[in-house]
Design a protein around this nucleic acid. Structure first.
Length: 553
RNA sequence: GGCUCGUUGGUCAAGUGGUUAAGACGUCGCCCUCUCACGGCGAAGACAGGGGUUCGACUCCCCUACGAGCUACCA
């Protein structure tokens, strides 16, 4: 068989050789320990927490030592393509402050496009150049088997309990003569290009995975598809060529790829490429109510883990990042606690520290981190964050909430405990924040907690409160009046006295405060009531209380 | 079915042959306190099971169970 003749028959239009591309995309000149990583999503239009999780790992590995992190779009599967997906990916990652150095999203002529194009569909002539050279060397061949034929073979293999796939005696197109091939092609028969695998089933490959350590796998023996019948490469072929030509040094990818590592190993070998380092990550998992076990995050089943969800509810991107970092590198949390003022990008991130098994997404933990991180921000920063969120998600309400900046800042200061010895930690995410403070902006809010005293007592206390109330009172004068009311109606004003003999009282000052608190805010738990009253003003307070009194039967 | 990876408290996890088996979240209790939040103190709670190897196994080996992934002209 004349391989050169075959190569020319298959790829008559290919002019460039692999050497041409090797020269065009030279090794990168980078600092010593710098790594080149990439995020290579397929544009399916959906991006969830797990994607962010691995993107963050890639980004950290590249940037911790002055390397390069780029975005490549793996759009080889026509069926799964979704319009606008690329924009979504870029926007979401930008929102979460994960910056790319090059790749999709930059202009074609921009210097950040030097190793492009970064859309695989725009790279077919490159793939074909390498494919042609494989054919020339007898390492690839066209296969004319139809899907039906392949299915039939697979069924037979399954029935015979043999290894399924296109290999050995099942690789019927492997030894077609030039004449047969030419005839098929002239007849217009569609074909795929397959690798002529050199693998030996008895041998195994050994390679070092940065996360899992030494891995032993049998050599690949399958004549896998390199080019699909439309001439577009499969993942495997594109991966080898792209990551080589884009000079990727570390491939961080999901553990589902581990099993196909032998294919990649053979491909890199046969193409004469140096293997990158691999790091196969464990997936973020979710507790599955149905089965009662862990499972991989799924697009269809877990819409609440979509990144859009976190944007909608207003989770601060920084908090998300801190959370993911604590999952990614277990020593991060300790480091962050030890150096609270250091930029989290200074953390010495390492792939080796990444978990071997999939972590369950933990909302409690996320919330705890949100509370802590938000409590480190200034009221101005929180104001800006909430403002941006509200404008995008609650434009109508935003007009009300942000009509008076000073008022909003006062509320934030109160809820954040700014100026106090210790900061409060009530805030988790924007939506929740507004649920906490909305009563400031309504004349009569819905009562969310019930009075524990009967309505006669409530009425009496509230009337008394209104009578004694003086807006000029400071916090302690104001509180003394609550005590006065307590004493007058058989409640203890002194907590110690109450604790000593609770049976002597109807209750204590806290019960009086609670009545007023519920009347004013609609709920039993709030920060300092005096401050609340002074932010909302005497009029609003009186109106609310009178409204409550009137509502008591 | 075959191949592969994994398995420490409810969750995330430290741990690399000798430890009272860290820490964080959550839960519960106490303290502080006008409620809440914050903060402080404390409690409960784990090496999947069985065999080896060894003076000694959470740590090394084998088997079983369970979980996950792959087994496409999808990535």
């Amino acid at each position: 068989m004349d391989n050169t003749k075959l190569a020319n028959l298959l790829f008559p239009d290919v002019v460039n050789t692999p050497d041409y591309y090797e020269e065009k995309f030279p090794y990168r000149k980078l600092p010593n320990k710098a790594e080149v990583t990439r995020m290579a999503p397929s544009p399916t239009g959906f991006i969830h927490l797990g994607n962010l999780y691995s993107a963050l790992a890639d980004e950290r590995i590249a940037h911790k030592n002055g390397g390069v992190f780029y975005l490549r779009i793996e759009d080889t599967d026509e069926k799964r393509k979704v319009d606008g997906a690329v924009e979504t990916i870029i926007n979401v990652l930008r929102y979460f402050d994960i910056e790319f150095d090059e790749g999709a999203g930059f202009d074609m002529d921009a210097p950040q496009n030097a190793y492009g194009p970064y859309f695989q569909r725009q790279r077919v002539e490159i793939y074909h150049a390498y494919a042609k050279s494989l054919v020339e060397r007898g390492l690839a061949y066209p296969c004319f088997c139809t899907e039906e034929e392949l299915n039939k073979v697979r069924e037979e293999q399954e029935a015979a309990k043999e290894l399924t796939g296109y290999y050995g005696k099942y690789a019927v197109c492997r030894n077609l003569s030039y004449e047969e091939i030419e005839e098929n092609i002239k007849a217009g028969k569609p074909y795929v290009l397959r690798l002529r695998s050199q693998g030996d089933p008895e041998k195994e490959i050994i390679f070092e995975d940065a996360i899992k350590g030494e891995i032993k796998l049998p050599e690949n023996i399958h004549d896998i598809v390199l080019l699909k019948k439309d001439g577009i490469p499969t993942y495997h072929f594109a991966h080898a060529i792209d990551d080589h030509l884009m000079r990727t040094t570390v491939v961080i990818r999901g553990g589902e790829w581990l099993a196909s590592a032998p294919i990649h190993y053979e491909l890199f070998h046969v193409l004469g490429f140096k293997m990158p380092k691999y790091a196969h990550t464990a997936h973020l998992m979710k507790f599955d109510e149905e089965t009662g076990g862990k499972r991989k995050l799924s697009k269809r089943k877990d819409p609440e883990l979509s990144l859009d969800y976190y944007r909608k509810d207003g989770y601060h991107p920084y908090c998300m990042k801190v959370y993911l970092l604590t999952l990614l590198n277990s020593n991060f949390e300790e480091w962050h606690e030890k150096f609270p003022d250091k930029n989290i990008n200074e953390f010495p991130f390492s792939v080796e520290k990444m978990s071997q098994s999939g972590a369950l997404f933990d909302k409690d933990k996320l919330h705890n981190i949100c509370k802590n991180e938000l409590s480190k921000l200034s009221e101005e920063e929180v104001y800006q964050f909430l403002y941006d969120w509200a404008l995008e998600n609650e434009p109508e309400q935003a007009k009300v909430w942000f009509a008076d900046k000073e008022k909003m800042l006062s509320i934030l200061r109160l809820y954040m405990g700014v100026g106090a010895k210790r900061r409060r930690k009530d805030f988790m995410y924007a939506k929740q924040v507004f649920e906490l403070i909305h009563y400031f902006f309504e004349m009569n809010t819905q009562q969310e907690d019930e009075f524990r005293m009967d309505s006669e007592v409530v009425k009496t206390v509230l009337n008394e409160y209104l009578t004694l109330y003086n807006h000029e009172d400071d916090n302690s004068a104001w509180f003394n009046k609550l005590k006065e009311i307590a004493d007058k109606h058989g409640f203890a004003s002194d907590m110690k006295a109450y604790k000593a003999n609770p049976e002597n009282f109807k209750g204590n000052v806290s019960d009086i405060a609670e009545i007023v608190r519920i009347a004013v805010t609609g709920r039993a738990n709030t920060p300092d009531l005096w401050t609340i009253v002074h932010i909302m003003g005497e009029d609003q307070m009186r109106e609310r209380i009178e409204h409550v009194i009137a509502a008591q039967a």
